[in-house]
């Protein structure tokens, strides 16, 4: 049989339409590989068949497109890569039964116990962690309270020592009390003003206790002056926040008069503001 006879024997159509048996198929594939004419004839019939099939196509229901494409999109990809070589029809591949070696019973119990312990341990961890957080927060609160108490205590301590000092000053026999009042001052803005200078006759330290002075306006501050031979000498600024306690002022060795004027905050080198009180030594 020559090639042309082979081609026109109907084998091309039989092969392409899937009607050839195994032997015919193998022979045809060999012929295709060896003879370009056979291959060309196969191609030509395939083209004819394809064109005919497309020409006589029947449209499936429109909804089928989405159904099918969605199913394909849901198909697993990787698992399909390893496929058996060409088979004409799908064959059922028997899954191999692989038997696992038996696990000893005590190992199973041990595993179960380990899991239970793990779960219990996780539970306890959580419980103790929660507790730890609670105590940690309570500790922080106590620490803050303690700091506040310590601060309050320090403030009270300072106040107490100031009062003790005041009392000690008042009872000290070496201390001279010089009363300064508004009426003694030439033109006191508040004639009821009263302040007392305690002057230590040995150390010459000057302490001041305000009995009654009007609250100065902001930006103003009371200043104590010692009048020495008719010259006013700065004896220190008065901080009204101290209340009725004895405040240590500057050391004044010698003075005939003490007076308080209202000056700019921070004080003046010489008195400029109004005099509130005046007292003779």
């Amino acid at each position: 049989m020559n090639i042309q006879e082979y081609i026109s024997s109907g084998i091309v159509e039989s092969y392409v339409l899937g009607l050839a048996d195994e032997a015919e198929r193998l022979e045809f594939e060999q012929m295709c590989a060896r003879h370009a004419e056979v291959l060309a004839a196969r191609d030509a019939f395939e083209m004819d068949l394809e064109q005919h099939a497309i020409a006589s196509a029947v449209a499936p229901p429109a909804s089928l497109r989405e159904t099918i494409l969605q199913q394909l999109a849901a198909e697993p990809v990787a698992a399909n890569r390893e496929v058996a070589p060409v088979v004409e029809q799908e064959k059922v591949v028997q899954m191999e039964v692989t038997s696992r070696p038996a696990i000893p019973l005590f190992m199973r119990y041990a595993a179960a116990a380990a899991i239970i312990l793990l779960v219990a341990s996780a539970g306890l961890n959580f419980y103790y962690f929660t507790k730890y957080r609670e105590f940690s927060q309570a500790y922080d609160r106590l620490l803050a309270q303690q700091a506040v108490l310590a601060k309050n205590s320090a403030v009270l301590q300072t106040k107490l020592s100031t009062y003790e000092h005041t009392v000690a000053g008042l009872t000290d026999t070496n201390m001279v009390a010089i009363k300064m009042n508004g009426t003694s001052a030439p033109a006191s803005p508040d004639r009821s003003s009263l302040a007392t200078v305690y002057w230590d006759t040995r150390s010459k330290d000057v302490y001041l206790m305000v009995n009654n002075l009007p609250q100065p306006e902001t930006g103003k501050q009371y200043q104590l002056w010692a009048i020495v031979d008719n010259v006013p000498v700065d004896a220190g600024m008065l901080d009204m926040a101290n209340g009725h306690v004895m405040v240590k002022m500057k050391n004044i060795p010698r003075a005939q008069l003490f007076a308080i004027t209202l000056e700019q905050a921070g004080g003046s080198p010489t008195p400029k503001g109004p005099m509130y009180v005046l007292g003779k030594v």
């Binding site: 394809e50 099939a53 497309i54 006589s56 196509a57 029947v58 449209a59 499936p60 089928l64 497109r65 099918i68």
Partner: peptide, 9 residues
Amino acid sequence: DNYASALYS
């Protein structure tokens, strides 16, 4: 789109 109809037929 190109072959479903032919295969359907």
